[in-house]
């Protein structure tokens, strides 16, 4: 290849490299540098003056509230991985058949994800409200008054209530991806299996499931990454309360950054959180490769 061609090629990728460097690589290193500093986000940043080695990280590993928030995000993720995705798959299977008004169902199931998260949070906050809430009103009307409670102020129910709404809001994404995956499976496979006398369960277990493995992995990765970063719903529904019962990592990062003016510590939280998500993603990719080979 001539030098001129090589130069030309590099010239073409230069804009992309510049954008990637400015908006991804530089911020990453900046955040990492800040995570090694004690800085309030207001005074002019002086690396040498504010450098404190890895003290933010060592404090973070001893921060009980941070790990509680991480566990709580894990709990919401677990519910999303199981119930949300099970619901999404069930509805995708139902819509994959030639049913009347299938497109209408698709639109309806895809509605929650396109709604504004803050609006969803506020509406559900009102539904769960102990004073005015629709949920308590319905429970009283159907004779279940003993279940009436302040759903979001009760430490036993607050996190689960938020998790349920997160699932309701998010199942549409899984539904669309599952449906797309189901529609790529050749129909002939089902027909052949039916001719061989396979039952519906056997069709699902031996045809649908193996061919959907890559889709399951994709949906799980997206679910974990999306759910661990849940934030707006929490902010609009409980603001992390009661106590610390609905705190999640992103609300803690915000509390450090805005509430305590500890930018350095917030950056170290961001780095650790990002690293955890990265490890989970890598593990899932490895798992996906292993399952494909199996």
């Amino acid at each position: 290849m001539k030098a001129r061609d090589i130069f030309k090629n590099y010239l073409f990728i230069l804009p992309a490299v510049a954008i990637f460097s400015v908006f991804y690589i530089y911020p990453f290193f900046k955040v990492f540098a800040l995570s090694l500093c004690q800085w309030d986000g207001i005074a002019q940043f002086d690396f040498a003056k504010s450098f404190i080695w890895f003290r933010n990280f060592s404090e973070l590993f001893r921060d009980r509230i941070w790990w509680q928030a991480m566990l709580q995000a894990g709990y919401i993720t677990l519910i999303a991985l199981t119930f949300q995705n099970a619901l999404a798959l069930t509805l995708a299977l139902a819509c994959d058949r030639d049913i009347k008004g299938g497109n209408i169902y698709r639109v309806i199931f895809y509605l929650p994800p396109v709604l504004s998260e803050i609006v969803v949070g506020l509406v559900w906050r009102w539904i769960y409200d102990g004073n005015y809430g629709l949920l308590n009103y319905w429970l009283q009307n159907i004779g279940l008054s003993r279940l009436v409670t302040d759903w979001l102020s009760n430490p036993n129910t607050a996190l689960t209530c938020v998790a349920i709404i997160h699932c309701w809001k998010g199942f549409g994404w899984g539904f669309i991806i599952f449906l797309a995956g189901l529609q790529t499976i050749p129909r002939q496979l089902y027909e052949v299996a039916r001719v061989d006398g396979a039952s519906s369960w056997q069709l699902f277990k031996n045809v649908t499931m193996p061919l959907m493995v890559p889709v399951f992995i994709l949906v799980s990765i997206l679910t974990i990454l999306g759910t661990m970063q849940v934030f707006v719903l929490i902010l609009s529904m409980t603001n992390g309360g009661p106590g610390y019962h609905t705190e999640v990592p992103v609300t803690r990062i915000l509390a450090s950054m805005v509430g305590s003016s500890r930018f350095g510590y917030a950056c170290s939280q961001g780095i650790v959180f990002g690293a955890i998500l990265l490890v989970i993603s890598f593990m899932q990719i490895r798992l996906s490769k292993y399952m494909r080979q199996a």
């Binding site: 409200d129 102990g130 004073n131 302040d150 979001l152 102020s153 607050a158 603001n239 106590g243």
Partner: peptide
Amino acid sequence: LAGGVVTMVNKTAEQLFANGK
């Protein structure tokens, strides 16, 4: 204390008081 006070935002508290609840 009014029910749900620990997660109540001030706007809700204002509504409760303004509406005589």
